[in-house]
Design a protein around this nucleic acid. Structure first.
Lengths: 222, 222
DNA sequence: TCGGAGAAATTGATATATCAAGTTTCAGAT
DNA sequence: ATCTGAAACTTGATATATCAATTTCTCCGA
């Protein structure tokens, strides 16, 4: 079992429910590698370590299990199942879902959404000069959000969100490369053009390739 | 809140854990429409109705929430969020993930997998004559399973499995149409050929179109 | 009649106790 | 020395009790 410092007790700061808080803590610990694949978790031990009872922890672990990050064997224990291979598959899942969202967006996009996308592209180009990586990350997210909104696919969006496993550090690292920043803007512009032209097939393909190419860069940083 | 007959008490047949059993019961009730969108669930009431305590029920509800079928509002209640729109999006999610799996399969497929696929196609063609719908359903599943195995993508497969919402009745109904049976075999053969030819782009596109076309037929039966 | 303050009821959130399946340990026979 | 099996221990599964936020109801005053 992992060292007792892999997870620290929860502070009495109840921003949200304990179970949600704990869910985030354990999920982050798994994705950051502080809890490694194959490691065994003990519900009671973990609960007391976190300073909570087992009830909210059980609920959090059940969610993590349904997401495929851990596997629960009845009366045996909970094992971390996340590994590098799964990280790559989660990236592929994100590519599949994000490209389906782009396809739907290309079918339903409104002119005002197109205007928003184009405005963001302009901002991104400007950001290439200033090299404010934090701002580029934010612009990146806003760009994808505009497409999500335009698609009207709330379920796909939610499912896609669950496949995000990149840390802030990885994002910073990737976008610190000048070539990556340039490529990202080029690809975003191509995607925006395909959606604006109402070409679902093209938008889907460009988005898939963008997520996979960019994703492979991120996976290297882990 | 739903009528007291929407869900019946669990039998003392513990094939699996109570939480898994209850999870299946509630999920089926939602997908079958016995628990309708917008309906409010009461944890205590539902637990006593099922003859169990709230602990396993809470865990089951948390999983359903992470799947997006219900939404839990702290200290307010649990509301069914599933509706026709989400059903369509789940079909699209299945198309996106299944087509990504087909893409990976086309990259990694082994000759023995190809042989398996071709054998199943032959069986399907034969099945067209005998019109044994149950057997066709089974062949259908085996065909998709071969592709899943060939892809080596266990996570994508699992995620895709969570998007299956068609009832057995809907499957029966759809495959009872002669034209649908014919189309399905044709599409399966085209997919098999694309994978055998190691053409990821083609396999992905064909699989996506197949799942969407067939899915829209299923959604009409609900 | 209307409206708001506050008490009562409701209900999910959390904690704790109990149950039962699985694992480990170790005495005792071969 | 090795194998067997029963007892002790672990641990997740389940049940129950308690807590606290929210809603609903009630009643008094304008």
């Amino acid at each position: 079992m992992g060292g007792d410092d892999a997870l620290l007790p929860v502070e009495p700061v109840f921003l949200k429910s304990l179970r949600d808080h704990v869910y985030g803590l354990v999920r982050d610990a798994i994705l950051a590698g502080r809890l490694k694949g194959g490691e065994k978790l003990n519900e009671r031990h973990l609960a007391s370590q976190l300073g909570i009872s087992t009830t909210p922890l059980k609920e959090a672990l059940r969610v993590l299990e349904s997401e495929g990050l851990v596997r629960s064997e009845p009366r045996r224990g909970i094992y971390i199942t996340f590994n590098a291979g799964q990280a790559e598959e989660m990236m592929l899942a994100r590519a599949a879902l994000e490209s389906m969202i782009a396809r739907q967006a290309a079918k339903r996009v409104k002119d005002e959404d197109v205007a928003l996308m184009r405005a963001l592209i302009v901002e991104m180009r400007a950001g290439l000069e200033t090299v404010d990586v934090l701002q580029l990350i934010a612009l990146n997210e806003r760009f994808h959000n505009v497409i999500h909104e335009a698609s009207g696919c709330s379920y796909l969006r939610r499912l896609q969100g669950g496949q995000n496993i990149y840390t802030h550090a990885a994002r910073l690292s990737v976008l610190s490369e000048e070539r990556e920043r340039f490529l990202a803007v080029e690809e975003h512009e191509a995607i925006a053009n395909a959606i604006a032209a109402r070409e679902p097939d093209l938008a889907e393909r460009l988005m898939r390739d963008h997520v996979i190419r960019s994703g492979e860069k991120h996976l290297l940083r882990v």
